[in-house]
Nucleic acid binder design. Structure first.
Lengths: 166, 166
DNA sequence: TAATCGTGGATATTTTTTATCCACGAATTG
DNA sequence: CAATTCGTGGATAAAAAATATCCACGATTA
């Protein structure tokens, strides 16, 4: 059972956006460069996030992505589901009903207790993720050239603007 | 995030073994035929289960697999970990430290809160799976030719014995 | 002693994930 | 108003896992 790398990229991207000042946006290219990952791949997840209503997009020059709602209203679960889809990790293939001696009688068509137990654990997992919001994650900080400390998103935004200003 | 199909096969196999009468065993071939899955593939998981101390093996003719301990002592988590490995689903690649502006200073080398939150959710998930034992799952029942009801394992064991008796 | 079973490693096959590319439409800047 | 910059969405290629198979070996029991 492995979670895709896209989830980590997505969460860090959203976390960085949550540290931006009012009106600030970051382009997909900037986010990808900042994290050292493939732009086209990150783009796919950013689109999933905007499709899920977590991010807003700002088209045109100076455009990019920003949060669609308050950090407090965005949970880790929201992000995970947007990127990985909402299908449960455990999929019961009802192998009870296969083979030469299946539990085929309607009388025995009661729900698979194994499936039930696995899904319950997954509900608990999701509930835990739902408890944690972006606000709980906190803003990642970084050191700037002048020795001060700033939110990573803001710091990189400046670097990026300086570059595009040339 | 998807859990391998092997998990379902493994759990059903173990559940079936828990329904056997004292001294009874089922061969890998029987378990595979019963569930309608590939023998060689199931074998891989059965070996993982015996390696993890969940199943015992009985070599020789009339040999096979049986539980290594009481159903109450075997949790779903034990089985999942034996088959899927114990690595967490979420692997933090520390992408904070990548890109042109990494959080590299020792001062900021505090643990990644995102990773912490994801791993906590996974601990909760595993704790829930650990709560459920084979005894809680119950024995799967099936209808037999003569109209009676029997544990699926026993029923198939008889079928299998009849076949090998020829 | 012959048949049966599990062991373990090597290997092929299939599926999924990851990653990339391109043509298009929309919005903004100058 | 035109050029630039951005996101959209589908198609596609490359890489990685999962799934499935095979074979030679050792152990056990009828």
């Amino acid at each position: 059972m492995k979670m895709g790398d896209g989830v980590e990229q997505a969460i860090h991207s959203v976390a960085m956006l949550s540290g931006l000042s009012e009106g600030g946006v970051l382009s997909a290219a900037a986010l990808a460069e900042f994290h050292g990952v493939s732009t086209s791949y990150l783009l796919k997840h950013l689109q999933a996030l905007s499709g899920a209503g977590i991010l807003d997009t700002v088209p045109g020059p100076k455009g990019g992505y920003r949060l669609a709602k308050a950090p407090k209203e965005i949970s880790l679960l929201d992000i995970v589901l947007a990127v990985e889809g909402s299908a449960p990790a455990f999929r019961c293939a009802e192998i009870r009903q296969r083979g030469p001696n299946p539990v085929s009688d309607r009388l025995f068509a009661q729900p698979c207790t194994i499936n039930a137990a696995m899904l319950k654990a997954e509900r608990v997992y999701r509930a835990e993720l739902a408890k944690t919001s972006l606000a709980d994650i906190g803003i990642e900080l970084t050191a700037v050239d002048d020795g001060s400390i700033a939110a990573r998103g803001c710091a990189f935004l400046e670097i990026h603007e300086r570059k595009t200003a040339r």
